[in-house]
């Protein structure tokens, strides 16, 4: 979600398990019955049918409901593998090494690991991303938007029925300095295709009163962030709205379930701007439940870097995700110098 662009001097890529790079990728012709293509990346094979996504690897296989799989795949694609680990569910996922990525089955699952049934392969990020993008494009049917809340989109079920490329190729919003500044990310309006969401119909749309002296038009600027968020057409997809060096304010609107269990490799802050969001916290490596956090408007908390989290929001809510996009952090993580908990007191 809130990944900064690759910065000059990006640190070296880590390969903590000493795995060889996989370079074999294949896209198979459409199945005669379902109409969907199947895909292969390294030894992982992906097929879908009317209801399920099936993942196979040399010593195992896993099945996910295709709606959950597509919502998770969409985030992994949109977020560029994101920070740390993106668990599609308790079995399958990816871990980002910023230039390379590990794809795993069971590596973050206590049972798989205890039985030594976990399986991991290593890829160049751009190569795996290419096949993930093909997959989300082919497996998303006309009328279904994996970014949308379930009540705001069609269904993913059934045999191949068209596609929805505009939905699955959305570009994430990344303001360079602040939304609304001249030359930066524009505000959202009816005119540019962002109507107010049905659950935010009561959010005031007034804009700040800005009086600018001549010559300062590029510096004296303000916008209505809550109105901007009320017009988001996606859920669980933070976008960068303001930037202080590597400090990224990435607010987002949330409805239904965060489609992944995110195991961040760094501390990640959440400030609930409106309504209520319930976080389910699990141990990062085993998946055991460790806590529940109820966040209401004004609550702020930080996810430690050794957990994984998912979230639930019935009424569409506004959440400020706050990330530190510093390129130093992967090195600090590797050297064990990055804090697990943001603040000790």
């Amino acid at each position: 979600m809130a990944m900064v662009e690759a910065a000059p001097g990006q640190p070296r890529i880590s390969n903590p398990r000493g795995l060889p790079l996989q370079s074999a990728f294949r896209t198979n012709p459409a199945d005669n019955f379902t109409g969907y293509r199947s895909f292969k990346a390294g030894s992982f094979e992906f097929t879908r049918d009317e209801y399920f996504a099936h993942i196979r690897w040399p010593n195992g296989q896993h099945t996910m409901p295709v709606d959950a799989f597509l919502r998770a795949l969409m985030r992994d694609v949109a977020w560029g593998f994101f920070y740390g680990t993106v668990n599609f569910d308790g079995v399958f996922g990816t871990t980002n090494y910023y230039g390379e990525v590990e794809m795993f089955a069971g590596a973050m699952n206590e049972s798989f690991k205890a039985a030594k049934r976990d399986y991991i392969e290593r890829f160049k990020s751009d190569q795996l991303m290419r096949i993930f993008k093909e997959m989300i494009g082919d497996w998303t049917n006309q009328g279904y938007d994996p970014f949308a809340a379930p009540m705001e989109t069609g269904v993913p079920w059934g045999t191949k029925n068209g596609d929805n490329d505009p939905a699955v190729t959305r570009q994430r919003v990344t303001a360079k300095r602040m939304v609304g500044l001249p030359g930066d990310t524009p505000r959202r309006t009816d005119a540019n295709g962002f109507p107010v969401n049905r659950m935010f119909a009561d959010v005031p749309q007034d804009e700040p009163e800005v009086e600018v002296e001549p010559g300062f038009e590029h510096e004296v600027s303000a916008f209505n962030l809550f109105a901007y968020l009320s017009r988001s057409d996606v859920t669980w997809n933070p976008s960068v709205c303001s930037v202080v060096r590597e400090s990224l304010f990435c607010p987002t609107s949330e409805e239904f379930i965060l489609p992944v269990e995110h195991g961040n490799d760094r501390c990640e802050w959440f400030l609930q701007l409106s309504d209520e969001l319930i976080w389910k916290i699990r141990d990062g490596s085993t998946g055991r439940d460790t806590a529940t956090i109820v966040c209401r408007a004004g609550d702020i908390c930080c996810m430690p870097s050794d957990i994984r989290h998912t979230g639930y929001s019935t009424k569409r809510s506004m959440l400020l995700v706050w990330e530190n996009g510093s390129p130093r952090i992967p090195d600090l993580i590797r050297e064990g110098k990055a804090p697990t908990v943001a603040v000790q007191f």
Partner: peptide
């Protein structure tokens, strides 16, 4: 210049 902010408004 000056800016008048109400709830939800962000300024640089």
């Amino acid at each position: 210049g000056r800016i008048r902010l109400r709830r939800g408004h962000m300024a640089m």
